[in-house]
């Protein structure tokens, strides 16, 4: 799943339209939108770190998020000299309040240039050679507790700079700027999806695990052993029907013993 967070409705609207995201009426603390196939969600957070942190936590509580999910903060930001409308992925986030720093891991070919971002508590026109916004540090700080650094990113479109400061920014301009970069956003998602799929594949439980856990009693430690043994089974005895072998086992302990004994007595070749 892909979770997008925008501070402002005007940042969100082009994405809601592009990805065809209906409003989820049941959640009223923050406005959450989600595609019918539940693959993409978007939350409008409001301005500032507190709103962003609350919205990421709320969205996580409302939707069923997973370790393999993609988390994106998309919005506008200021910069001293990058031309308006250009887009940047963020490779370093510094919270101006306490100088805490995070490093989103760009381990794919980025669809655009990347740069440093500073999150401020208040708007500023004291532009420097970094992006400025008011939410990214809070977004990252919470999202990193829920996902992996390779899948959590901030994408910013330049809305103001030393030549045209924040006074010139309005909702219509922001909508147009975001709309103009939808292809880059699509590309970013396309590059993140295979990474997300890979994490999903390694975190998924092995075949039959859920069925056996529901059917028989396993302690916490035995559940881990079951997961490990089922994986070993699928690697060492891929053509054997494990369920047939343990059909007569009446307890979790008996299942573990049968699996362990059969695996230990099988031949092991590391390659074909």
């Amino acid at each position: 799943m892909i979770h997008i967070f925008c501070a402002l409705p005007c940042e969100a609207q082009p994405l809601i339209q592009h990805f065809k995201l209906p409003d989820l009426k049941e959640f009223d603390l923050f406005r959450i939108y989600q595609s019918k196939d539940k693959e993409i969600s978007l939350t409008i957070t409001g301005i500032g770190k507190l709103n962003m942190a609350a919205a990421v936590s709320y969205q996580h509580a409302c939707l069923n998020t997973a370790a393999s999910d993609i988390w994106l903060n998309i919005g506008v930001a200021g910069h001293a000299n990058i031309p308006l409308g250009e887009v940047r992925l963020v490779n370093k986030i510094t919270d101006n309040h306490d100088n805490t720093t995070w490093y989103p891991q760009i381990i794919f070919n980025s669809p655009c240039k990347s740069t440093h971002l500073i999150t401020l508590d208040k708007p500023s026109t004291d532009y420097q050679d970094s992006l400025y916004d008011m939410e990214s540090s809070a977004f990252y700080q919470i999202a990193i507790r829920l996902g992996s650094a390779e899948l959590i990113h901030c994408l910013k479109i330049i809305s103001d700079n030393t030549e045209q400061d924040t006074a010139t920014v309005n909702a219509d301009k922001v909508k147009k700027m975001i709309s103009a970069q939808v292809q880059i956003i699509e590309k970013l998602i396309d590059r993140l999806k295979p990474l997300s799929t890979e994490i999903y594949s390694i975190t998924a439980e092995p075949e039959h695990y859920q069925h056996l856990i529901e059917k028989l009693h396993f302690t916490q430690s035995e559940s881990l052993q079951l997961s490990r043994l089922l994986r070993q089974w699928s690697l060492r005895l891929p053509d054997e029907d494990v369920m047939q072998l343990i059909a007569d086992n009446k307890s979790g302990k008996a299942v573990l013993k049968t699996l362990r004994d059969t695996i230990n007595n099988s031949e092991f070749a590391i390659h074909d």
């Binding site: 995070w102 490093y103 891991q105 381990i107 794919f108 990193i144 507790r145 996902g147 992996s148 650094a149 390779e150 990474l195 890979e198 994490i199 390694i202």
Partner: peptide, 13 residues
């Protein structure tokens, strides 16, 4: 830093 994935990073360290 925690919450990073060695396997994924190996693709483009």
């Amino acid at each position: 830093s925690k919450s990073q994935n060695f396997r994924l990073q190996k693709k483009q360290a």
